[in-house]
Design a protein around this nucleic acid. Structure first.
Lengths: 375, 375
DNA sequence: TGCTTTTTCACAATCGTTTGTGTAAATTAT
DNA sequence: ATAATTTACACAAACGATTGTGAAAAAGCA
């Protein structure tokens, strides 16, 4: 008689989603009391609180976040948009975000734009409809303007970009100091005695590739070396693309003595091509990449590369989000967090007598932990 | 006067979350009409529908999924629990799930158990509180019983497992035929003339490792070879673990002439150790791994490995979920989908005269696409 | 024209929480 | 002992959408 949903049968099929009303009835108090007891409101007596909590456990009460979010106007959902979830970088960033978010009681909704701006637009609408408390996004390659993000701002939903942004726009973002990364890698090659250093660049409308290139140029300049157009090759950053670029460089009357690629796959392609031609690495040509992918430690020789601090980036992005909601009053909340990259020096660029590879900064790093996965 | 939220200033700060009520007022009709027009209900005239749709676009109306979900009792959210989001396998599966889910209008909430059953429990509660329409999960290593999943069943929320399950329980799941994978790999090594084949096994309480081992044993038996305890090494499936196991095997009076590891990292460790000892692969010892990680194509020689069909698994898992909701009446919905693995044969196991590596089944596969990522 | 059927829409309850306001009882102060 | 506080709780209105029921207007049929 007390049961609201009376099935014809008494079988314990998909049974009672016990609600606060149930608790209230059982205890003979109002829902207000239940709600306030559960949220530890000061106006509820300790005895009542205990009783409510106890009954809640007993009846296995599960709060309905939807209802709460609806009433309060803000949910505990966080939207994340990435081009792809696969691949080391974004997967690690998402890992960092999810870990931090879950500690703070947030659940993360993941969306993939598939490098398509139209899909990115849809993702935004989906997330807004889901009433997320905030949106973290790394732009798709095909995103050339910010129009669709205006809607987010209209809704007053905190927006944080990470890694990929559009230049010139004032947005909240956490970024890697790509220029510094490019600078460090190039500088290292210079210190190894290389003087004709080639560079594989990615699409220049993306801040990341533009800045890596700038770092490369800055390093050259610091050694008083004028950049040479023929040594800068545009590359799609695939293994095949890297090999193709390398092959082209070898046709030059005066080939380079080192290559710095803005991506690890490309530098791997270069390595494979060089080996197939019998050219020694690093003696004849030294190599350095970007991203510190797992493959850098599998290739032979192991590849020098710039680490992007993926997990830190994820943590920082979430932290920036919470900062934004905390300081919801700040007039111009235009914050940028810049992470410092870390160069991992390995055999592919070490020309010093000792062929012993050494790692810059702290030791072996994240790879071992990442490899202990059971699939 | 008509504005419900009247700010003191007229500045277009976090402005109007326009609701159905707004549309109704503007058009002078009831909310019922708005709601039904938006969901294309038959009882709304075409003229009215047009008007509503038009105004919705004009005012930039965004439906509040929370409210709808609350009323309807079911959301368009899908919960996914994985041990980790990093690493090729789970990232790819999640990619598959998200792609399929988003096509069907579902958003996916991602949770990581970090291989911890306590965290897994929390994840479940979080997802239930979020009123997800279904839960897809791959068990953590430390999960030894199903108690916490009973609650899910109680709530009537569809539950689908993938890859990792607990044996003996009747659950809906999509699995890889790991036994077949182990069988194919071992069989291939046998066909290459190997007769003393070692095996690196993982934790045996996990279905995946148990079955891979069974496939190994079955293949040996098909050749009338009795398994040898000393050739089966328990391994944590890391690079270091694989190297250690390999080193132990080399101390045997009669070392193996091949190794099949239940994971790629372990087989890579074995390869590295063998090379450091000057032992030739595959001539002296042939190698085969499991998972078809990217590193298999970077190592030299390239590593033979069993592909797990990650993306198909994700798609299948989502599809199984939708099947469950469609057939909500079926008495015993205990369905299992089994995917067939695919052996990729590469140089590490090819003893035939030609050193040319060949790939079983269709060509090069997923790697190239996966490498064209820009980070 | 009178009656039935269809089309088109409004009323109002409901999903499960939260929260401003009101009000008894219990405690303290005077 | 009476007034001023504090404590502990209930009422009821939201939040934004969905939906069974019912009723008026339009259309079809004789």
């Amino acid at each position: 008689m007390a049961s609201r949903r009376s099935d014809t049968t008494k079988q314990p099929e998909a049974s009672s989603p016990v609600s606060m009303a149930d608790l209230a009835r059982e205890l003979g108090v109002s829902m207000t009391t239940i709600s306030r007891a559960l949220s530890d409101h000061h106006s509820i007596g300790p005895a009542t609180k205990q009783a409510v909590l106890k009954l809640a456990k007993k009846l296995n009460y599960q709060p309905n976040h939807l209802a709460a979010a609806l009433r309060k106007g803000k949910s505990k959902l966080l939207g994340v948009i990435v081009p792809y979830i696969e691949g080391r970088f974004f997967a690690s960033v998402v890992h960092g975000i999810e870990t931090a978010a879950s500690k703070a009681g947030f659940s993360v909704i993941i969306c993939q734009s598939s490098e398509d701006v139209a899909q990115e637009r849809k993702n935004l609408e989906t997330l807004l409809s889901a009433q997320v408390a905030g949106i973290l996004v790394s732009l798709s390659l095909t995103t050339l303007d910010f129009k669709h993000f205006e809607k987010v701002r209209k809704h007053g939903v905190p927006l944080v970009f990470f890694d990929r942004i559009l230049e010139g726009d004032n947005v909240n973002a956490v970024l890697l100091n790509d220029r510094e990364g490019g600078y460090q890698a190039t500088r290292h090659l210079l210190e190894q005695g290389c003087r004709r250093i080639a560079h594989f660049v990615g699409m220049q409308h993306l801040n990341i590739y533009k800045n890596r290139r700038q770092g490369y140029l800055d390093a050259l300049q610091s050694y008083g070396i004028a950049p040479e157009e023929g040594l800068i090759k545009s590359c799609d950053m695939t293994v095949e693309g890297g090999a193709a670029c390398m092959a082209e460089l070898l046709t030059l009357p005066q080939p380079p003595d080192a290559v710095f690629a803005a991506g690890d796959s490309a530098i791997l392609g270069a390595l494979q091509l060089l080996k197939s031609r019998g050219i020694r690495v690093p003696q004849d040509i030294a190599l350095a990449g970007f991203s510190n992918e797992a493959l850098t430690q599998v290739a032979e020789p192991m590849l020098t590369s710039v680490d992007q601090r993926c997990e830190e980036m994820g943590q920082a992005a979430f932290r920036l989000f919470t900062d934004l909601v905390d300081a919801k009053n700040a007039p111009f909340s235009q914050r940028q967090v810049v992470l410092q990259p870390q160069l991992f020096i390995r055999a592919s660029s070490l020309r010093s007598g000792a062929s012993e590879p050494a790692e810059a900064g702290d030791a072996a790093g994240a790879l071992p932990r990442r490899q202990a996965r059971h699939t």
